[in-house]
Design a protein around this nucleic acid. Structure first.
Length: 408
DNA sequence: GATTCCCGCCACGAT
DNA sequence: ATCGTGGCGGGAATC
């Protein structure tokens, strides 16, 4: 699949944005939104590797935030670390395999541990995944923390670096996902998850703080996973406490028409009392900004108008199956339904409609980088659509114009 | 008041 | 010594 790679957009000049007067809003700086933008930036056929500096520069954020995202994405198979400062882009196609591995690993941990001495149990197939595992009570469908390697007598002897690794965002992500993959519980609250994944299984004076710290990390992870549509935020039935439900590769629960589209509300749409993860623009570096290139001398502040955000945030959540029956999904693929009813229009007609819309639709950005990012997206979308239309006579087009409605 | 999570300090290992 | 990485928790925004 070696199509001539269109040049990536040049580094953004975020500073040109004349919308600095906007009040600070943390919603506009969420990790989830940053993740969305990260994925829309790199989720293209011609992207093979991702440079962290490049990503930080293009997204207008400090490197630190990129690390957060990259660690989570690596854990679910979207990225693979190649070298210092560089990752291979695998894309959404890597997720099913990663999840499969995680699930197998988790089940092995659980069932293997029934007959093994907990203190000797060690995962064998995960690089650094040697601790903080958990048990799930399948009978009750409830999560029940039973052990983790940190509580073993060997804990005190482990190197500091090991202990550090145990608390890494990547490992925490994998264990968090494992929880979902091995429990019957419909939802898991972050508090529960934190308790289960707590590094120190013993009651200690630090436990409460430790738990709070881990919950903070889980929020970070949940935001990223939510923006990938792997989980969704919900409430626990009885307690109405906030919790997360696993969506996985199937995306949002649906009415079995094969179509899943979960488009975030437009920024100006009222969404009372509900935070939306991964729906808005994210933060930038200010103080320790090492990203400023020669091109970009002014303070690297990315401020966008809400309509910029709306247009840039192409998180139309989609789901489809590839030719092998595996999953090819993700929020940043053009929306398409492989099954479901048509509306009388032929595929060709629809493709033409969408193509013409795609070719004529050119939103006005204040920000050059966003403009180009959007143009790239549209271009990729168009070519992908054409390919799909040619490759499959059974192609069914999107059930609605939701994506474009969102954009417009 | 509780929940959520951005932000950036700073430790640590690699170069 | 410098750089890349990322754990960590303060504290502010949001609910």
């Amino acid at each position: 699949m070696a199509s001539p790679p269109p040049p990536l957009p040049p580094p953004p000049s975020f500073l040109e944005s004349g919308c600095r007067h906007h009040a600070y809003s943390r919603k506009q700086k969420s990790l989830g939104l940053l993740c969305s933008n990260f994925v829309s930036l790199y989720n293209r056929d011609d992207v093979e590797s991702v440079g962290l500096d490049d990503a930080a520069r293009r997204l207008g954020v400090e490197r630190r935030r990129i690390y957060d995202i990259v660690n989570v994405l690596e854990s679910v198979g979207v990225l693979a670390r190649k070298a210092k400062n560089r990752y291979s882009w695998i894309g959404f196609s890597g997720i099913p395999k990663a999840l499969e591995d995680l699930k197998g690993n988790a089940l092995r941990d659980i069932y293997g541990s029934y007959s093994d001495d907990y203190s000797t149990k060690v995962s064998d197939d995960e690089d650094d995944d040697k601790s903080a595992d958990q048990m799930v009570n399948f009978e009750s469908g409830k999560l029940s923390p039973t052990f983790n390697a940190s509580s073993s007598s060997t804990a005190c002897c482990r190197a500091r670096s090991d202990q550090r690794k145990e608390k890494s965002l990547g490992l925490l992500t994998r264990n968090f996902v494992k929880l979902f993959l091995t429990t019957d519980a419909d939802t898991i609250s972050l508090d529960e998850a934190a308790k289960i994944l707590l590094g120190d299984g013993h009651e200690t004076v630090n436990m409460r703080n430790n738990n709070a710290a881990k919950v903070r990390r889980l929020y970070d992870i949940a935001n990223v996973l939510s923006s990938m549509n792997l989980i969704e935020k919900t409430q626990q039935l009885e307690t109405r406490k906030p919790a997360f439900r696993w969506l996985g590769t199937k995306g949002k629960p649906k009415e079995d028409n094969g179509v899943t589209i979960a488009i975030p509300p437009a920024p100006n749409t009222k969404q009372p009392n509900k935070r939306a993860f991964g729906t808005e623009i994210t933060n930038v570096d200010l103080k320790r900004n090492r990203l400023n290139s020669a091109v970009d001398k002014k303070p690297n502040k990315m401020q966008m108008r809400s309509d910029d955000l709306k247009q840039c945030n192409l998180t139309a959540q989609t789901q489809l199956q590839d030719s092998k029956g595996g999953f090819v999904f993700g929020p940043f693929q053009p929306t398409v339904a492989m099954k479901g009813g048509g509306d009388g229009q032929t595929s060709d007609d629809k493709v033409r409609d969408w193509e013409s819309l795609a070719s004529s639709f050119r939103p006005q950005y204040h920000n050059q980088a966003l403009s180009e990012l959007f143009a790239h997206y549209m271009e990729a979308w168009k070519s992908w659509y054409s390919t799909m239309a040619q490759g499959s006579s059974a192609l069914q087009l999107p059930c609605s114009n939701s994506v474009f409605n969102q954009l417009l």
